[in-house]
């Protein structure tokens, strides 16, 4: 914790993420309105005491929608990155542990995936599969595991030669237990860092998909949705785009600061 205090950027990232996490969790308690409550007599009201962040084109309370939207945005980030990390760790472990043809096969696959523009891939798949929050999370996950794979593989490469690993192998431990007991725990740092950074990208991808109309389905609120609704009235109903825009900005920023901070903190080179 002390190290966190020494790194103000990481600390502020942590605080941001924790705050948003808490807000998302307590959304049902603190949200003043049902996020889908339509009131056609209060369409596009500016922020006031009644509606802290104003109302949208159907008279729904933006503040409540933002709180519930936080849940969606965080969920998309966590699940997508969870999938990517899962695939990445498995493939990376296989490649890094067995090397040889397994490695070259997996790395070729990584190279192929890296050379196809990712956003194109996501677009095509989502459009073909019809958008839903689950499809979005799965597709983002399935198209962003390459980085983790490379990291884990590289980490395994350097760890494999360590004495304790060689010792475990000669003692006849099976491969799985070597990977789980010895190799993975020691490669955790880069995995965590890249996951945290991955969540940041996933949140941005979700807002981009919303912009293209391929995002989370109505009436569910997500920050990307609210922002896309608001862009039409950026000169008039500024509250509709300012709040979701800032929320995305601050959240992604928080993840990035936290991720980079963790890298610094956990990096053995920086330990005095």
């Amino acid at each position: 914790m002390k190290i966190f205090l020494k790194n103000p950027l990481a600390l502020s990232g942590l605080i941001i993420i924790l705050t948003i996490l808490i807000l998302a969790l307590v959304a049902p308690i603190i949200a003043p309105y049902d996020p889908n409550f339509i009131d056609i007599n209060s369409i596009l009201f500016p922020p006031s005491i009644n509606h802290l962040m104003g109302t949208d084109g159907l008279g729904r309370d933006v503040f409540s929608r933002m709180l519930y939207g936080a849940q969606i945005s965080l969920l998309v980030g966590f699940v997508a990155v969870g999938i990517a990390t899962f695939i990445g760790v498995i493939l990376g472990s296989l490649a890094g542990f067995y090397r040889g043809w397994v490695d070259s096969l997996i790395m070729r696959f990584v190279d192929i995936m890296l050379s196809i523009p990712t956003f194109f891939l996501i677009l095509a798949v989502i459009a073909f599969l019809t958008p839903s929050i689950w499809n979005i999370m799965i597709v983002i996950g399935l198209t962003s595991w390459m980085g983790v794979t490379r990291l884990v593989r590289a980490e395994f490469f350097s760890l494999r030669q360590r004495e304790y690993v060689l010792a475990a192998e000669t003692m006849g431990s099976n491969h799985l237990s070597i990977i789980i007991k010895h190799l993975l725990p020691n490669s955790l740092t880069p995995i965590i860092v890249s996951s945290v950074l991955g969540i940041a990208s996933a949140v941005l991808v979700e807002s981009g998909l919303s912009f293209l109309g391929l995002g989370v389905q109505a009436p569910t609120a997500s920050w990307g949705n609210i922002l896309t609704d608001g862009k039409e009235y950026i000169q008039f109903a500024w509250w509709l785009s300012l709040f979701p825009g800032l929320a995305i900005l601050i959240t992604v920023l928080g993840y990035n600061l936290l991720g980079e901070g963790l890298r610094d903190i956990l990096d053995p080179k920086n330990k005095i």
Partner: peptide
């Protein structure tokens, strides 16, 4: 429930 789909899928599927 509601599902919003882009036109091509809408027509074809």
């Amino acid at each position: 429930s509601i599902r919003v789909i882009e036109w091509a899928s809408f027509v074809n599927r």
